[in-house]
Amino acid sequence: MSGSPGATKLNENGIPDFESLPLREGDPKYSAWGLYGDKDELGTLNRLTDDRVAEAAKNEIKTGVRISLNWPLNAQKDSDSGFFNRKLFHQDLFAKPPRCVNDDKERLFYNGVTMEDIHEDGGSGVNGIQAWAQKGIVGRGVLVDHHSWRLEQINKKQQPNQELDPRLVNFDHFATTPIPLGDIRACLESQGTEIKFGDILFIRSGWIPKHQTLSLSSPATLASHASHNPPSFCGLEPSPQLFKFLWSHFSAVAGDQPSLECWPPLATRDPVNSGDQSSLHEVMLAGWRMPIGELFDLEALARECRNRKRWSFFVTSEVVNVKGGVASPPNALAIF
């Protein structure tokens, strides 16, 4: 490889512009390997500096009201099995050749770590979740309440001579339904929410209340959705524009659906490189080591935000300290 991350121009937030990615010739597209050193395991969590966390606490914590973001572990107790063929309350990782879904890029993980690096000496723990457990994921959170915004748009357009947007009306939580960047920006503008560099982004799609409705009214339908392989879910629409948006602003991103991006992943076609296909998981996790949160319970949070007319808050998430771990319950609180 040629080139050096140290020679890359950094913007006012201390990161290279999205257009500068990858930082070195030969690295995977959109990756930021080497930005914080070849041995770094924090990735975009380096953006959560002590100063930013202290500022978030000062500006966001006003009343001490605390909201849990943890969906109960027994929330799917009425199902025979979980989505993605996962056992309830337990998860095993299986290699499924020829496509081994490890959220890697070109069979490489963040900073070029290989599968062999991870498994050497019975498990090296490199890029394990224990690196995130040392200081937690703590800072200013921002909620994009897409579900409420979408319903508001439908209600507004039900006036005389107003044409309903079928894309919003026919939104299907259990289909590969994309949430495009334009909707996220429109929602933020409608809320009057300002984004600050290093924020932790939360997207409420409404998947959990839809799941709860089906669990009560049509468990057979819910079981049918769970039996699909692969299952289908709504989620963020991967695009170069969305990649740029996430890279330019956030330290971590979470949603209330089983997959942050719409699933199965949509092939992303870059207009400059017509053959390019990228998913959020491989770009965010393997390219940037930006944490992805899924199945966060954002219902009480959304109600609190609406009541306060403020969609920013202080958030803390303490992941489990397991060497080599690949996931964790969120253990998250939003504090107002």
Score class of each variant (00 low, 15 high):
residue 294 E to Q: 15
residue 129 I to D: 08
residue 104 D to F: 02
residue 101 V to Y: 01
residue 166 P to K: 00
residue 184 I to G: 03
residue 164 L to E: 12
residue 125 G to V: 07
residue 78 D to A: 10
residue 2 S to T: 14
residue 298 L to S: 05
residue 189 E to F: 01
residue 280 L to N: 04
residue 265 P to K: 08
residue 212 Q to L: 10
residue 324 G to S: 11
residue 13 N to D: 07
residue 320 V to E: 13
residue 181 L to Y: 03
residue 149 W to P: 02
residue 6 G to K: 11
residue 99 R to F: 12
residue 316 T to Y: 04
residue 245 F to R: 11
residue 218 S to P: 00
residue 103 D to M: 08
residue 244 K to P: 01
residue 248 S to R: 12
residue 23 L to Y: 02
residue 23 L to G: 03
residue 167 R to M: 10
residue 46 N to E: 09
residue 231 P to Y: 01
residue 218 S to I: 00
residue 298 L to Q: 06
residue 302 A to I: 08
residue 250 F to D: 09
residue 76 Q to Y: 12
residue 59 N to C: 05
residue 320 V to N: 12
residue 262 C to M: 10
residue 231 P to F: 00
residue 190 S to C: 07
residue 141 G to L: 07
residue 262 C to H: 06
residue 19 E to R: 13
residue 117 D to N: 14
residue 123 G to W: 07
residue 91 Q to W: 11
residue 331 N to I: 05
residue 196 K to A: 11
residue 73 L to A: 14
residue 83 F to P: 12
residue 180 P to A: 09
residue 37 G to D: 06
residue 72 P to G: 09
residue 122 G to M: 10
residue 302 A to H: 05
residue 280 L to E: 05
residue 152 E to G: 10
residue 223 A to I: 02
residue 111 N to E: 03
residue 139 G to D: 08
residue 80 D to N: 14
residue 101 V to E: 04
residue 60 E to L: 08
residue 128 G to C: 10
residue 150 R to S: 06
residue 313 F to G: 02
residue 260 L to V: 04
residue 295 L to E: 09
residue 185 R to F: 03
residue 183 D to A: 06
residue 160 P to I: 05
residue 226 A to H: 10
residue 220 A to G: 02
residue 147 H to R: 13
residue 180 P to W: 02
residue 100 C to A: 02
residue 287 G to P: 07
residue 268 T to L: 15
residue 98 P to K: 07
residue 42 L to I: 01
residue 190 S to K: 14
residue 194 E to F: 02
residue 302 A to Q: 09
residue 120 E to Q: 12
residue 231 P to A: 10
residue 110 Y to I: 09
residue 48 L to G: 02
residue 161 N to W: 01
residue 28 P to L: 12
residue 200 I to F: 03
residue 18 F to P: 07
residue 189 E to R: 09
residue 73 L to G: 15
residue 85 N to P: 03
residue 80 D to A: 11
residue 173 H to L: 14
residue 12 E to H: 11
residue 307 N to S: 14
residue 197 F to Q: 07
residue 199 D to Q: 08
residue 157 K to G: 00
residue 12 E to L: 12
residue 182 G to I: 05
residue 162 Q to H: 13
residue 36 Y to K: 10
residue 16 P to D: 09
residue 68 S to E: 04
residue 206 G to P: 14
residue 20 S to L: 05
residue 336 F to V: 00
residue 280 L to Y: 05
residue 118 I to W: 10
residue 317 S to N: 04
residue 234 C to W: 00
residue 141 G to W: 05
residue 92 D to E: 15
residue 217 S to K: 15
residue 59 N to F: 01
residue 188 L to S: 10
residue 290 M to L: 11
residue 87 K to H: 05
residue 305 C to L: 05
residue 234 C to K: 06
residue 234 C to E: 05
residue 307 N to T: 07
residue 270 D to E: 10
residue 322 V to H: 03
residue 130 Q to T: 08
residue 305 C to K: 06
residue 284 M to L: 15
residue 27 D to L: 08
residue 90 H to M: 12
residue 143 L to N: 07
